[in-house]
């Protein structure tokens, strides 16, 4: 048991993680591209046209996986934050800050595609649907995290402050979601829900799952790529950075 723990902590050192991430990210990027190709093929050519919504519904193949990812990435950030606070590992904070822009991007894509889907569906770009509203608040939480960590000069302090923000945020996300839902029912807002879309065909489900996998791979690849840049920036004075082959050039 202790042997395994030691091994894990070895990877937590930026000097070990940097080359590992360098080897791993192209694989994830390639997988992501492959999944995206298959997913898009299913969603555009295989999935049948919806008899109620026409072709416009196809945007949910982007919208739903993007929403899933935006929520999932926030949880991963909070997980890294918890690890960082418990074990005081430097890598955790770097991973959190590498993930945050991707999470914010997915939240934004989810809102954007939601609006595009909403216009033909509900006749309005924006409805105060519980899910959309929660997604908007999630975007605010991401922006708050990014703004706070960007405003603190000392990276170690920024990491720790960011860790607290993401932990406080992750406790609040379910509360916010629940309260928005409660508010939504009280106000009898939009009753059309995205999941209540006419019985989901198996092909549609497959399309969404594969697109979700593609987004997963993309997120991992981009986070690893970004964390490499962060490691280099933070550790630029360390000797192991100076000894890197790409630094010799």
């Amino acid at each position: 048991m202790s042997q395994r723990l030691v091994n894990w902590f070895k990877f937590a050192s930026p000097a070990t993680f940097y080359p590992l991430a360098g080897k791993a990210w192209p694989w994830f990027a390639a997988l992501g591209t492959a999944f995206a190709a298959v997913g898009l093929w299913i969603s555009f050519f295989v999935a049948p046209t919806d008899f109620q919504q026409g072709e416009g519904y196809r945007i949910i193949f982007i919208h739903v996986p993007a929403s899933w990812m935006s929520m999932f990435i926030y949880c991963v950030m909070a997980l890294w934050a918890a690890i960082g606070i418990t074990f005081n590992t430097r890598l955790s904070g770097m991973m959190s800050s590498a993930l945050a822009p991707t999470g914010a991007l997915f939240a934004f894509i989810s809102l954007w595609t939601g609006a595009l889907w909403g216009k033909p569906m509900w006749g309005a770009w924006w409805v105060w649907d519980a899910r959309l509203t929660s997604e908007l608040i999630l975007l605010f939480l991401y922006l708050g995290y990014i703004a706070l960590t960007a405003a603190i000069d000392d990276p170690r302090r920024a990491d720790k402050a960011g860790a607290i923000v993401s932990l406080v945020g992750v406790v609040n996300v379910p509360i916010i979601y629940f309260s928005v839902k409660w508010w939504n029912t009280l106000h009898q807002g939009a009753s059309v829900s995205m999941t209540k879309a006419p019985t989901m065909a198996t092909t549609m489900l497959w399309g969404m799952l594969i697109m979700a996998l593609a987004f997963w791979m993309y997120s991992i690849a981009i986070a690893l790529y970004r964390v490499r840049a962060i490691i280099l920036e933070r550790e630029r004075h360390a000797t192991w950075v100076a000894e890197l082959p790409e630094m010799q050039a």
Partner: peptide, 18 residues
């Protein structure tokens, strides 16, 4: 923190929603 006042509202207002 630089620009703490505005940042504070950005952090806190979403948490005030419930």
């Amino acid at each position: 923190v630089r620009g703490g006042g505005v940042l504070l509202s950005l952090l806190v207002l979403p948490l005030y929603i419930p």
